[in-house]
């Protein structure tokens, strides 16, 4: 275990040692299922990492987009696939929240998968239309509480990152206001830019360029620490709302029963990919960073999934929203 905590330069050594376990694997190309449409943020993460993992594994990882029903269709596909290491799943926080958002899932989230590792945690930012009155985050909270009857918050549909963050915000400030769902982030962002809705909380993947371009106003980030990209933005915890901390974490899974040698081998490849400067640069452009090597492990992902399911269940149940 000591070896694994060493990162960067020692990755090569890990690859060699784990390659010895998984004799022969992989022998053919690997399919990584992305449970969302091609071109979306999750797909982008998968393609970035998948390409570098392919180089390390010596076999092509191809991305198959199995979109639909908030990612549960793709997850179900992988849950039923052969546990031979040739079908993987790259899913985000929705893996944990759909366990509560969907009352009938065709798989048991905690029982149906083996774990490879965490890939990245994308921070979220509370943004508002450019001419929204409040100057800073405390003023923003006060304003929303005072004008709960007139403000409106956009989200990209049930179960979307922006919806999850919105639910947290409502429960954190104990105020109910109108939420406006959209079909995806694109239209929601358009209406925010056009001033049709007041504010939204979304991933830096979708917001960082708009913040830099000054087309939206940013109030706070939802991570424990401030972001390198926006050092002036306070964190929600600094402003007294630590319960609003959330990030859109992505993990790679394999069907239950996949041999441990295989998941270890994949995890090693994932660590190599995440240590790649090109991947780090592309992720930095999106306002995120690769998970550190100690998080790109089966144990870390398993732990993350369990914690997050337990965390979201009460939030979703008290909000009373279901996606089916």
């Amino acid at each position: 275990m000591a070896i694994r905590s060493l990162s960067g330069a020692f990755c090569a050594a890990i690859v060699l040692s784990s390659a010895a376990f998984a004799q022969g694997y992989p022998e053919r190309q690997i399919t990584m299922v992305v449970p969302f449409a091609a071109g979306g943020p999750t797909d982008t993460v998968a393609r970035l990492v998948g390409e570098k993992m392919s180089t390390d594994l010596g076999r092509q990882i191809i991305i198959e987009n199995v979109g639909g029903a908030g990612g549960t269709l793709g997850a179900a596909r992988v849950a039923q696939a052969d546990p031979d290491g040739y079908t993987l799943l790259l899913h985000h926080i929705g893996m944990a929240t759909s366990a509560s958002l969907y009352r009938s899932l065709p798989y048991d989230t905690l029982e149906a998968f083996e774990y490879v590792g965490l890939v990245t945690e994308v921070p979220m930012v509370m943004v508002a239309r450019r001419d929204f009155e409040p100057a800073d985050f405390p003023a923003f909270i006060a304003y929303v509480k005072e004008n709960a009857g007139t403000v409106s918050m956009a989200n990209a549909g049930i179960g979307a990152a922006s919806h999850l963050c919105g639910m947290l915000f409502q429960s954190a400030i104990e105020t109910q206001f109108v939420t406006v769902p959209y079909r995806g982030t694109g239209p929601a962002m358009t209406d925010l830019l056009g001033g049709q809705v007041d504010f939204m909380c979304d991933q830096t993947t979708n917001t960082s360029q708009q913040i830099r371009g000054g087309t939206v106003k940013a109030y706070a980030v939802t991570t424990p620490e401030r972001l390198e990209l926006f050092p002036d933005l306070p964190t929600v915890a600094e402003e007294g709302l630590p319960q609003m901390e959330v990030s859109i974490w992505h993990g790679i899974y394999a069907p239950k029963g996949t041999p441990e040698e295989v998941t270890e081998r994949l995890s090693a490849a994932l660590q190599v990919a995440l240590a790649d400067p090109g991947v780090a640069r592309s992720m930095a452009d999106l306002g995120t960073a690769p998970s550190p090597a100690e998080d790109a492990t089966p144990a870390a992902l398993k732990n993350q999934l369990e914690t997050e399911i337990a965390r979201w269940q009460p939030v979703i149940e008290s909000a009373g929203v279901y996606a089916d």
Partner: peptide
């Protein structure tokens, strides 16, 4: 539209995050 969404995905993979800038 979905086609444009694909284009954005392609841009991001190329390291260009489309935006007002």
């Amino acid at each position: 539209n979905p086609v444009m969404a694909l284009m954005i995905g392609a841009m991001i993979i190329q390291g260009i995050v489309p935006g007002p800038n």
